[in-house]
């Protein structure tokens, strides 16, 4: 019974989020544009997330290298470690881990902020002040997450590769130049571009889910907490679904 109820709630949520996303395209990105608020959100969502993305990226690159080394040594292809790590980070792990960390930080923050604004009637106050709250709050945040996540992913990948370079040098000596030459020679546009483009969709998902959860938050502090929590869970699940679709699509297009 509870399972059926959960499935029903999930399907209802999915339908409502699709409607919310539709509203974003029908009204959210039409003039008048809230350019100043968009820039402010890009600063908060992008620039202020950089230390966290950088730190996790560095650790991810370092740990991945250290974990891969024994297997490669066993097969006698330790020299291929930069290639292996480079492809893994750029094609899959970098975008997905960055998106998940980003969802954890930003979707919860947007969900809690908008939920709190909803509960304390700040969204109504905004509407009374002649402002379309959907444009001011939802459109700006969603556009900011859509634009900032690809940038953060590129930076996160670069820092992860630097972490991998440190990881390689823990057990052996490889020059910075040699490491990155090996990484870049192994990568093609077919590796980089699909991985880069899917991060726009990841960013959009984080923004729209976070905004939806906050904007439709129920009354009370419990409702705000629940919005923040479900924004992270749902956006993380959506990221995996988009990743699955993206991999299938690139496979169909022969880009894998």
């Amino acid at each position: 019974m509870a399972f059926t109820k959960n499935i029903k709630a999930f399907l209802n949520d999915t339908g409502d989020i699709a409607g919310f996303a539709g509203q974003f395209f029908s009204t959210g990105i039409k003039p008048r544009f809230e350019v100043l608020e968009l820039l402010n959100q890009c600063y908060i969502i992008g620039y202020k997330s950089l230390p966290l993305i950088g730190l996790t990226g560095f650790i991810m690159g370092l740990v991945l290298t250290m974990q891969l080394r024994p297997s490669l040594v066993a097969y006698g292809v330790e020299s291929q470690l930069p290639v292996m790590v480079g492809i893994a980070i750029v094609r899959e792990i970098g975008p997905v881990i960055t998106a998940l960390i980003f969802a954890g930080k930003i979707a919860s923050s947007i969900g809690a902020e908008l939920g709190s604004m909803k509960v304390t009637e700040q969204i109504d106050a905004m509407e009374v002040s002649g402002t379309n709250p959907f444009k001011y709050l939802v459109a700006t945040r969603t556009v900011a997450t859509t634009l900032m996540l690809p940038v953060l992913t590129v930076l996160g990948d670069a820092i992860a590769l630097f972490g991998a370079y440190i990881g390689v040098n823990i057990r052996s000596a490889t020059s910075f130049y040699l490491f990155f030459i090996q990484v870049f020679r192994s990568l093609s546009f077919g590796d980089v571009l699909p991985a880069f483009f899917k991060t726009f969709f990841f960013g959009f998902a984080v923004g729209i889910v976070g905004c939806y959860k906050g904007y439709t938050s129920s009354k009370g502090t419990r409702g705000v907490g629940s919005s923040a929590n479900s924004a992270v869970v749902l956006s993380s699940v959506v990221i995996f679904f988009i990743d699955l679709l993206a991999v299938q699509l690139t496979d169909l297009l022969g880009l894998n």
Binding site: M117, T120, E121, Q122, D124, A125, M126, V128, S129, G130
Partner: peptide, 14 residues
């Protein structure tokens, strides 16, 4: 709305 003021119960200050 520009000609109407609305004082919210919980103040609704940003």
């Amino acid at each position: 709305r520009a000609r109407i003021g609305f004082l919210f119960q919980g103040n609704a200050l940003y």
